[in-house]
Design a binder for these strands. Sequence first.
DNA 1: GTCAGGGCGGAATAATTTATTCATCAGACC
DNA 2: GGTCTGATGAATAAATTATTCCGCCCTGAC
Lengths: 285, 285
Amino acid sequence: MSVIRKIQANLDRMSPADREIGRFIAENPDKMLGLSSAALAAETGRSQSSVVKFAQRLGFASYQDLKLAVSTHRAQDWRLPAGPIHGSIAQEDGFATVLEKLVSSKYRAMRETVAANGAREVGRAVEALDAARRIYLAGVGASSLVASDLSYKLLKLGRVAIQNGDSHVQMANVAAGGPQDLLVAISYSGTSMETLKIAECAKGRGARVIAITGMQDNPLARLSDILLHTVADEDHVRSSSITARDAQLALTDLLFLMIVQRQPDAHDFIHETEVAVAALKSAGR
Amino acid sequence: MSVIRKIQANLDRMSPADREIGRFIAENPDKMLGLSSAALAAETGRSQSSVVKFAQRLGFASYQDLKLAVSTHRAQDWRLPAGPIHGSIAQEDGFATVLEKLVSSKYRAMRETVAANGAREVGRAVEALDAARRIYLAGVGASSLVASDLSYKLLKLGRVAIQNGDSHVQMANVAAGGPQDLLVAISYSGTSMETLKIAECAKGRGARVIAITGMQDNPLARLSDILLHTVADEDHVRSSSITARDAQLALTDLLFLMIVQRQPDAHDFIHETEVAVAALKSAGR
DNA sequence: GTCAGGGCGGAATAATTTATTCATCAGACC
DNA sequence: GGTCTGATGAATAAATTATTCCGCCCTGAC
């Protein structure tokens, strides 16, 4: 919890002097950062020693520590959207409104998606990805782009990731798979025919299947070994599936980062890939 | 610019004592926050007065101000955890940390990107997109996926959007373009050779060019007619360009939504497309 | 009603930390 | 070689912060 929040929460339980000091800090964190303990005391009409004791009672080792914490709070204060913004984007909305709704709905999709997946299930997915001989990716339409994104990242880690925009090729790929392999099937609805068939094929050959799909019951979810959920705006026509894609990306990014955590040389691999790709950039000069 | 970056940028021009102090701070910002000027002097083998002077030469009023700035940097540091997270034994901790960093970094990239682009420039981009006969999209690597995403959305609106993952094909496409056409060139660095050449070609044929690129000066930005900025974590190796991609998507989503605003029948178009695509889903049953 | 105990608050003071001054030194420039 | 400039750190001054101590008020016991 941020310092300011902590101060506000305890304001009632504080002694008069502490309350006055706390209130001032909560209301003027910026100003407080420029004040010494004595100056803050003068502002609040209290003594310098009370200011120091206030910091200590809050659990800080020193007044300077309190200032650092307040500074951290200021830097992290993003004025989060007050609440979930309902409704779609109306025609008459101006630039600022569109912006606000876009950002907050993206944020919401992200937050709710990561909240919908427990550490355990994500952990299972990461272990499966980590252990797989080959990782196949399946997805059509917008999900295909998410699959490509993940495959690109996995390749950077030296993993064998196989993905193609053409679902026929995807099918051909998994048809050669076996029990040591893993399929990541991505479909928000969980009913995309191609993705489903590919998942069935993979399963038939003994491969494990990670499904990344919506919360509702669906065929893809039912046949998966590991099930990860994406949460998005249900009105896909109006939102153009933006939030569904963001939710999928948030989840695949999370998987990727968790794999990086488990791979000590991940940093080197990524770096080497970047260097190799950078060579392409300068090749034409 | 963050303090740490500022220090690193000036490191070469500094005197020996300042360089030593600056290097220590850049490498151990966390540790530095817990040190007094004298303690920091001891760590670096320099005198306490040199530390104070270092802060003053950097433009800070006091050593404490420097500390506050470093603290702010630490709080705003949105580098995603790329290495093993130390100090936490439980796996749950690692999970929560990665999650927190991921979500806040994504959110931040999004926010700062939309904030970096004024309504006027976005408006110009939207008008150009709206008026264009054909919209070409160019981008390689991860940017190619963003280009595909946008093209898919534009197609849903009935626009003529032309995109291909192969840069040779992209080049061939724009080579047939003319003054009524528009190219959206996407590259975070603004130096990707293929994207640049394609933009040059488009420009040579009279087409307008919208560049979606980072804040730094770069060749792509210079030759663009309309310039949109993306803000992301600078450390692409560690963050694996996740935030750069998110920033690009936030911007392209915004452009898309603004076009939807201007097109009265947009929702009908999107709906028809969804229905048509849905027919594919059930075809195999 | 009075008294003891405990905590709070602030003045005074001690301790620590920061800023400035000053002497020295090294290198640049004439 | 002489002089100037700027860097450096020791010494010192200034400031800030932490602690001590004492009076006060409140509370509860008798």
